[in-house]
C-alpha cells in the first residue's frame, strides 16, 4: 500500500507544518528530526488523531484525510505502549480483530500466530502490568499489526527502553516488517535507529522535510549541513574557498578544494581525518585535549586554535592527552557547504 501525503498543512501559533511525503508499498521509511520539528504531529495526522488545516493524505489512491482514525485501516504503536491495562496480552492483541468481527476461532489462531511472531506465546494470559518494557512494546507491535493494517505507524517506540534492549528490539521490528512487507512509517529522534532500520530516511526540521534519501546516501552525501550534522558524528570548520583551497577563518589551508571561491563550511566525518606527528605539511596543527577509550575504537578530541575536531583512531592508538601534531582532512572525503554560517 502506498501512502501519499500531499501538501499537508497545519498551523500552531507561530509553528507551521508543511509536508509532502510518499511511502512506497512495503517500504520502511523513518522520519527523523530534533524534538519539536513536527514529526510526531505528522504521524498523528496520518493516523487521524489530529486534523490538518489543508492538504490530503491518500492510501493507495483512497483519500483518507477526512476519515476518523477507526476508518483509516492503519496500525499505530505509541511511545508509552498504550496497552489496555484491564485486558490480558491476548485480549489486547485480539482487540482490533474483535472490532472487525473476526470469528472467535480465527481470532484465536491469529493471536497465537502474532504472539509467536513477537516471541510472547507464554505470556498470553498475563496482564500488561506484569510485563517488562520490552515485552510491553512487543505486545503493542503485535496488537497494531493484528488487523492487517495498510500502513504501520510507529511513534518513537523504543525511546522508553534501555540501550541494549533498543538494539534487540529494532532488529525485531525490522524482521517483522520484512516478514509481512508492511508499509511502515517510523518516527524517531535517534539517528542510529533511523540509519540501521530504514530503507529511506526523511529528515525533518522546523515543520518541513529537508530531504529524503537512503541511510547510506544521507550519511555520506548529505545535501544539507543540518542533515550531515544530525546523522552520526561529524566535524565542521568555518572558512572559505580561495584559489583551489579550503582556508579556515584564521587563514590556514586545510585541504585542496575545487569549485568557485566564497565563504562556507567544511564538513567531514571523524574517519576522514589522519593525524600526523610531524608538524610540517598540509593541514591544521593541533593539541590532543582528551582521549576517550570506546572499546572497539578510540575517540580523540583535538583542538586547533578555536576549532574542535573529533577523530576515530584504532583502539591501541598512541595519541594521548597533551601531545601535538598535524591534522589532515583526506582529500575528496569532506563536503563544502557554501554560505555564511
Amino acid at each position: 500500500m502506498t501512502l501519499n501525503v500531499n501538501d499537508l498543512f497545519r498551523r500552531y501559533g507561530d509553528f507551521q507544518l508543511r509536508v509532502n511525503l510518499t511511502v512506497s508499498k512495503g517500504e520502511f521509511l523513518s522520519v527523523i528530526g530534533p524534538s519539536g520539528c513536527g514529526k510526531s504531529t505528522l504521524l498523528r495526522m496520518v493516523a487521524g488523531l489530529e486534523s490538518a488545516d489543508a492538504g490530503s493524505i491518500d492510501l493507495n489512491g483512497r483519500e483518507i484525510s477526512h476519515e476518523p482514525p477507526e476508518k483509516r485501516g492503519i496500525g499505530m504503536v505509541f511511545q508509552d505502549y498504550a496497552l489496555f491495562p484491564h485486558m490480558s496480552v491476548a485480549e489486547n492483541v485480539a482487540y482490533g480483530l474483535k472490532l472487525r468481527k473476526v470469528g472467535k476461532k480465527d481470532r484465536e489462531s491469529r493471536v497465537r500466530e502474532l504472539l509467536a511472531l513477537v516471541r510472547l506465546t507464554d505470556k498470553a494470559d498475563e496482564f500488561p502490568a506484569t510485563l517488562s518494557g520490552g515485552e510491553q512494546q512487543r505486545v503493542a507491535l503485535a496488537r497494531a499489526i493484528a488487523p492487517n493494517p495498510s500502513v504501520l505507524l510507529l511513534d518513537e517506540p523504543l525511546s522508553a527502553l534501555d540501550a541494549r534492549l533498543r538494539i534487540d528490539l529494532r532488529r525485531e521490528i525490522r524482521e517483522v516488517h520484512d516478514r509481512l512487507s508492511l508499509t511502515t512509517l517510523y518516527v524517531t529522534h535517534d539517528q542510529e535507529e533511523a540509519l540501521t532500520l530504514s530503507d529511506r530516511i526523511a529528515v525533518m526540521k522546523g515543520g518541513e522535510i529537508l530531504q529524503t534519501g537512503t541511510p547510506k546516501g544521507l550519511y555520506e552525501r548529505p545535501g544539507h549541513l543540518f542533515t550531515g550534522m544530525f546523522l552520526g558524528l561529524s566535524n565542521t570548520l568555518a572558512g572559505r574557498v580561495e584559489q583551489g583551497w579550503f582556508v579556515t577563518d584564521s587563514g590556514t589551508q586545510v585541504v585542496r578544494w575545487g569549485g568557485p571561491d566564497g565563504p562556507g563550511t567544511l564538513f567531514f566525518r571523524p574517519h576522514h581525518v589522519v593525524l600526523h606527528e610531524s608538524p610540517s605539511g598540509i593541514g591544521l596543527s593541533f593539541v590532543v585535549k582528551r582521549v576517550e577509550y570506546c572499546g572497539a575504537w578510540t575517540l580523540v578530541h583535538v583542538v586547533s586554535g578555536a576549532h574542535r575536531v573529533i577523530v576515530f583512531e584504532a583502539r591501541d592508538t598512541l595519541w594521548e592527552e597533551g601531545r601535538s601534531g598535524r591534522l589532515e582532512v583526506l582529500p575528496g572525503e569532506g563536503l563544502f557547504f557554501p554560505g555564511l554560517t
Binding site: P69, G75, Y95, A140
Partner: peptide, 10 residues
C-alpha cells in the same frame, strides 16, 4: 494514548 490507540485499531 489509550483511547487513541483504540481508535486506530478500529
Amino acid at each position: 494514548s489509550l483511547p487513541q490507540v483504540a481508535r486506530t485499531l478500529g
